[in-house]
């Protein structure tokens, strides 16, 4: 079913165009990586603050308000560039265990990030739950680093 879909997709005019114009994939990957740069940096700042390792002059609630919107702003560009890469090389991506693991981890981290942001609306929510904040920060950081690593390993399957 999925292999057939990949086969069909790779024969569509759009996919053929992406495959034959040689600069498209490296250019789209570059934009994709620049988006990863924004997300990794902002999330590292947030997660280290949640864990309590950096930026401690600012309260957690302020850090959440400062950094989380960058993820929601960048994620659509990530998904768009990611989709172009999938359309260009459907089998390489969709049939790849690193890619699938990456998507599963992405789904989890999006839920965690939304949870961190939503709970932050309550007065001093994370400030009064230091241990939960540490756990959320560490889990989020681990997931983002794993997502990036899995993304890089797609090329080595």
């Amino acid at each position: 079913m999925l292999p057939n879909f990949c086969n069909w997709l790779s024969n569509t005019p759009l996919s053929v165009k992406i495959q034959t114009i040689l600069w498209i994939i490296p250019a789209v990957q570059t934009v994709h990586i620049l988006c990863v740069a924004i997300i990794m940096s902002t999330m590292a700042m947030l997660d280290f603050r949640l864990i309590g390792l950096a930026g401690t002059r600012q309260p957690v609630s302020g850090a959440v308000r400062r950094w989380v919107p960058w993820v929601w702003g960048t994620l659509p560009v990530m998904l768009l560039t990611g989709c172009i890469l999938i359309i260009g090389e459907p089998t390489r991506e969709l049939m790849n265990p690193y890619f699938r693991t990456k998507m599963a981890m992405l789904a989890i981290v999006v839920v965690i990030t939304a949870f961190i942001q939503l709970r932050n609306r309550r007065e001093a929510y994370w400030e009064s739950r230091a241990l939960a904040a540490k756990f959320a920060g560490a889990f989020s950081l681990l997931l983002w680093v794993s997502i990036l690593t899995a993304g890089r390993w797609i090329a080595y399957y």
Binding site: V36, A37, I38, I39, S41, A44, L148
Partner: peptide, 8 residues
């Protein structure tokens, strides 16, 4: 990973 932190 390092580059994403550098650039970001």
């Amino acid at each position: 990973l390092a580059i994403t932190i550098v650039v970001g």
